[in-house]
Design a protein around this nucleic acid. Structure first.
Length: 445
RNA sequence: GCCCCCUUCGUCUAAUGGUCAGGACGUCAGGUUUUCAACCUGAAAACAGGAGUUCGAUCCUCCUAGGGGGCGCCA
C-alpha cells in the first residue's frame, strides 16, 4: 500500500508552531514510507478563508522545506460533497433539523445546568412532515445532521493505541448549514476517500471527531483510513497555547532570522524520545521518525530553546551550505571567515556584525590607550597567519606587563569593538595590518 | 458539569516488579600551556501526593491533585 497523507489547514490565518508540527509529522512520515503528501486547503468557510492566507501557508511550508505532490482546494470540490449528501440522504443517515443556533445554545446550557453533557437531543427526528412543512413556510430552513449509530467506535491509533469513543455520547454532527454550505466534517471525509488518503495524522484535538468520521466513512461505503493523533503543544509555562502569541507564528520565526531546519528540527523532536538536536536535513529527520517515539503528554514549545537550537545548528554548518546566502548578505569573507565566526552566531544575520569587524568600517573602543599604543608599535609586518596573534600578543605582554584579561580585553575591544567574539587568532589575519593599526590608534577603520 | 488522555532531573524523554533510574538540552565546574564566546571534559540534578496488591513498587490497581483535549450551523 502506498502511503498517502494530507496536511489540511484552513486558510483563515498563517501557520503557527502547532500547525507546522502536524505538517512536519505528516511529511516526515510520507518521506520515510516513500509516500506522498497532499496539501488540502480546507476553505469551505468562505467568510474567514482568504487567498492571501492560502498563499501565506504555501510560502511557510516551502520555507520549511515541505513539498507536496498535489494541492486541492475544497472550494473547488462542492460537486463531490453534493453527491455524498445525496447518498447519505438516500441511506437515511442525514436528517433535517430546524433549531436556530440560539435555540441550540439554550439547550446546551440547560443540559449543562443539569449536570448532563451537552449532546443534541435529536428532537428533529420526531418532527412530522407537517411540522417540517410548517417550519419551512414559517421561513425556517433546515440544516442537516448525520445520524450516528449509538455504538462504541474503536480504532487502533498510530500514537495512542486502541481508542474507544462511545458514539451515543456524541451529538449528531451538522454536515450542511441552513444556507447550504459545508462544515468541515463531510468535505474532509469525502476528500480523504476521493484522494485515496491512507493515513490521517493530526492533533489530538480531533480524537472525538474521529468516531463520527469513521461512521461517515462507513456510511459512504469506504474503509476508514488509519488514524494517528499526535500530542498538542503547550507554552513555555506549561499552559495551553494562546493562538495569538506572536512568537509561535512561523512568519515571526522567519522574521527573527531563524533557520528553517532549526524550526523543523525543534518542532519534529520535542515531544518525542529523540533528543532535541539540530539536523542537517528533513531527510535526516524523516529517517528518525517513528510514531512509537511520540509522547502522549503535551509537549512544551519554548522559543528560548528554539533559539538555542538555532545557534547550535549554525555552529556546525559547513561553509558550502551557507556560501550563497552569505554573498546575498554582502558578506564576502569566504570559508576562513565562516569557520572563524560561525561559533558566535545566534542567527545567520549576525554575520554582518563580524563582517564589519573584518572589513570595516568600525569605531574601535579604546579601554587602555597606553596599551593600545604600545600594541600598535609592536604590530608585525604582513603576511599574517594564525600564529601572528600569539606572537604579537606575547610581545605586547612582555612590553607592558599586562596579562590575562587586562591584556586581551583592551585588544579585543580596540580591534573588534565588541566584548565577546570569535578567537582573535583567526580574526586578526582577516582584519589585516592596516585596519588593525588604525583601530589601535582609535580611528574608525 | 460530563467524557477522554497525560504526569520521571529546570526542559524533551529512556528503562525496569529488585537498576548506582540512562541520554540529550540547559545549569555549574575544569580544560583549551594567558580574556569572552565557541569547543572539549566532568559534576549536580527526577520517579506529583496518598492508599492498596506484592517478599519487594517508579513500574500493577484505586483515590487525590495538577496539566492537556473534547462536549460548535469552528477546523
Amino acid at each position: 500500500m502506498t502511503v498517502t497523507v494530507r496536511f489540511a489547514p484552513s486558510p483563515t490565518g498563517r501557520l503557527h508552531a502547532g500547525n507546522i508540527r502536524t505538517a512536519l509529522i505528516n511529511y516526515l512520515f510520507a518521506l520515510k514510507s516513500g509516500g506522498t503528501l497532499i496539501l488540502r486547503l480546507d476553505d469551505t468557510d468562505r467568510e474567514r478563508s482568504t487567498a492571501e492566507f492560502a498563499r501565506g501557508i504555501e510560502e511557510d511550508l516551502v520555507w520549511l522545506g515541505i513539498h507536496w505532490s498535489k494541492l486541492v482546494r475544497q472550494s473547488d470540490r462542492f460537486a463531490l460533497y453534493d453527491a455524498a449528501v445525496e447518498k447519505l440522504k438516500k441511506a437515511g443517515r442525514l436528517y433535517p433539523a430546524y433549531e436556530t443556533p440560539e435555540e441550540l445554545e439554550l439547550k446546551r446550557k440547560r443540559q449543562l445546568a443539569r449536570g448532563k453533557p451537552p449532546v443534541y437531543d435529536r428532537a428533529a427526528l420526531n418532527l412530522s412532515d407537517d411540522d417540517k412543512a410548517k417550519l419551512e413556510t414559517g421561513g425556517r430552513k433546515p440544516h442537516w445532521r448525520f445520524l450516528l449509530e449509538p455504538r462504541d467506535v474503536v480504532w487502533d491509533d498510530l500514537v495512542r493505541g486502541t481508542q474507544h469513543v462511545d458514539a451515543a455520547s456524541l451529538s449528531d454532527p451538522v454536515l450542511v448549514r441552513a444556507d447550504g454550505t459545508y462544515l468541515y466534517t463531510l468535505p474532509s471525509v469525502v476528500d480523504d476517500i476521493d484522494l485515496g488518503v491512507t493515513h490521517v495524522i493530526r492533533g489530538e484535538d480531533h480524537v472525538t471527531n474521529t468516531a463520527a468520521q469513521i461512521q461517515l466513512f462507513e456510511a459512504l461505503d469506504s474503509a476508514p483510513p488509519v488514524f494517528g493523533h499526535h500530542n498538542l503543544l503547550v507554552g513555555a509555562d506549561g499552559q495551553a497555547l494562546s493562538k495569538r502569541d506572536r512568537s509561535l507564528a512561523i512568519e515571526g520565526m522567519r522574521a527573527e532570522g531563524l533557520e528553517p531546519l532549526a524550526v523543523a528540527s525543534y518542532a519534529a523532536t520535542i515531544g518525542t524520545s529523540d533528543p532535541v538536536a539540530p539536523h542537517a536535513s528533513l531527510d535526516e529527520l524523516a529517517a528518525l521518525f517513528d510514531f512509537a517515539k511520540q509522547s502522549r503528554a503535551p509537549a512544551r514549545f519554548d522559543p528560548h530553546d528554539l533559539h538555542l537550537l538555532n545557534a547550535k545548528l549554525l555552529h556546525g554548518l559547513p561553509y558550502a551550505s551557507v556560501a550563497e546566502r552569505l554573498s546575498e548578505m554582502d558578506v564576502a569573507g569566504g570559508e576562513a571567515f565562516w569557520e572563524a565566526v560561525r561559533g558566535n552566531l545566534a542567527v545567520l544575520s549576525d554575520n554582518r556584525t563580524w563582517w564589519r569587524v573584518v572589513a570595516g568600517p568600525l569605531t574601535p573602543v579604546i579601554q587602555d590607550a597606553d596599551l593600545c599604543r604600545k600594541a600598535a608599535e609592536l604590530l608585525p609586518p604582513e603576511p599574517w597567519d594564525a600564529e601572528t596573534w600569539s606572537a604579537w600578543s606575547g610581545a605586547v605582554k612582555a612590553a607592558t606587563g599586562a596579562k590575562g584579561k587586562a591584556l586581551f580585553q583592551p585588544l579585543r575591544l580596540a580591534l573588534t569593538g565588541e566584548e565577546h567574539g570569535p578567537e582573535l587568532k583567526h580574526l586578526l589575519p582577516l582584519i589585516g595590518r592596516e585596519r588593525a593599526l588604525a583601530r589601535l590608534e582609535g580611528k574608525m577603520a
